[in-house]
Computed example of a mutant assay.
Amino acid sequence: MKLEVRHWQMLKSLSELNNVAQAADSLGISQSALSHRIAEAERRMGGKLFEKEGRRIKLTPAGELITQAALQALPILERAENDFELDASNEKQIVRLGVASYSCYHWLPEFMQYVSKQAPNIQLRLIASATQNPISNLQHSSVDIVIAPGYLATPGIIPTSLFKDELVLVTQYDHALSHQRYIEAKDLSQQQYYTYSQNVTPGFEYERFIRPSGVIPQQVEVVEMTDAIIELISAGLGVSILSKWAIDAALKSKRVSCTQLGKQGLDLAWSALTRESEKKNSATKQTAHLLARWYKASNQ
């Protein structure tokens, strides 16, 4: 490798701050030392990484490409060091856990207690950012297990079946639609509708329920936080279609109601996704199996 870790750290700081003085402070070096480090990196790479723009600097197109690699690699290296330190001091194995599609963690405390009893050598660490781009995060080792609804066959990724769920209409508690046995897509036409993502995800409500009907809600707003959607619905400001599991806590507290989609309902299966390269007896594989066992016991 032509660049050292200090050069990668420099790229990250300059990319985030776009200011030599502030970047130098964040790195704990002088502006002069940082300028020398930039020149050294450019000399090693054989091209310009930055260009001046008034008093500020910005990345060149080539510098942008290499900086993206720095932004991905450095957090992984930092987490590896932290995991090592924890492992060395506590003799525990760290397993990074994330949830895809829905930011819901009502289940986490009980599962953590379960793991501490069944596998005291494993320490769970929640990676909330795994909700965005979960497969990519898993492939790049930013997270070890992703609890995901649905599943598209992905090379190098192995699913462990967890539990059966369903997609439901979520409304304010005691909403008029909540008294129906089920709803049709046409019932959404005049509703303020909140969607978790503007991307069409195979196997979810738009593909299976809304689009086939030919009826699209007239008022659609993207809200990328499950908790925020629940708060809006609880206040009577609209409706949404979400995983019933994801809104379990809000249902139990009667802040919202849910209604089946169509006569047959819309099922949704959840899995624990892990890397195929994981060893069979790794802490990650153990945790995936503990998840499956815990959900099976919880649903009995």
Rank of each mutant, 00 (worst) to 15 (best):
G236F: 02
A176P: 13
K244L: 12
Q218E: 09
A69K: 13
P109V: 09
A80L: 14
H7R: 03
S116I: 04
R275P: 01
K285P: 00
A23Q: 04
E42S: 09
Q219S: 03
R56D: 04
G262W: 01
E16T: 06
L74H: 03
L232M: 10
S35H: 12
R255D: 12
V146I: 15
S129A: 15
S298K: 15
E78Y: 01
K252H: 11
A128V: 13
E78W: 00
R96W: 13
A24N: 07
P159D: 01
N137P: 00
G98K: 10
L126H: 02
S253H: 08
Q132N: 04
V239C: 09
Q190W: 00
E207Y: 05
K52M: 11
Q218P: 00
Q260S: 05
A80M: 14
I38V: 15
Q113A: 12
K186C: 03
D25F: 03
S35F: 10
K92E: 10
W107Y: 11
E42D: 11
S298W: 07
I66T: 10
E91R: 12
L266W: 02
E81N: 13
L167E: 10
A73V: 15
A176L: 04
E42A: 11
S240C: 02
R43A: 13
P159I: 06
E110K: 11
H140L: 14
S178G: 12
I145D: 07
K296W: 09
N90H: 12
I147P: 00
A130H: 05
S103W: 00
A70N: 04
E224T: 07
V95L: 07
R79D: 07
S129P: 02
A33F: 01
I135W: 02
E184Y: 05
S234C: 00
L11F: 10
I158W: 12
E276C: 10
S116D: 12
G46W: 06
L34K: 03
S26A: 15
H36Q: 14
D187Q: 05
S253C: 04
G98Q: 11
F209M: 08
S277K: 11
S30Y: 08
L77Q: 11
A292T: 08
K186Y: 05
S253R: 12
Q264R: 13
E221C: 05
D144Q: 10
R56T: 09
I229G: 01
Q286R: 05
L169W: 11
I76R: 14
L273C: 13
R211C: 00
